[in-house]
């Protein structure tokens, strides 16, 4: 299955990465090469095989439902491109 320019633009949009037409054009053969190569996995017989999600047997731990962190607002905001009044600031999202 090969992908075309429209698909590349759609993937870029889903990825929230703006691309120019020229950049998208250049990505078509690159992504097709990589996807064409990974498609060889389709030939592997995986009948009855469970998808692997954890490589080392481990179980998720539960912790006590208590606040163990917090009161570090200034630290959390320290690297924000724009912080105002103790909040992250973003462009207006309501028309």
């Amino acid at each position: 299955m090969s992908i075309d320019l429209q698909t590349v633009k759609k993937i870029a949009s889903l990825s929230r990465i703006s691309v120019t037409d020229a950049e998208a054009e250049a990505m078509v053969p690159e992504l097709n090469n990589i996807l064409g190569w990974v498609e060889q996995l389709g030939e592997v017989d995986v009948t009855g095989v469970e998808p692997m999600t954890a490589v080392i047997p481990n179980h998720l731990r539960l912790r006590e439902d208590a606040v163990t962190d917090g009161n570090v607002r200034d630290k959390v905001l320290a690297n924000a491109p724009q912080a105002e009044h103790g909040f992250f600031a973003v462009p207006k999202v309501i028309e």
Binding site: V38, L41, G42, V44, V46, V49, E50, P51, M52, T53, V55
Partner: peptide
């Protein structure tokens, strides 16, 4: 087709 298949092949590799 891609991701689940890869996770299954990963299990076979392990």
């Amino acid at each position: 087709a891609y991701y689940t298949q890869a996770q299954k092949v990963r299990a076979l590799i392990a």
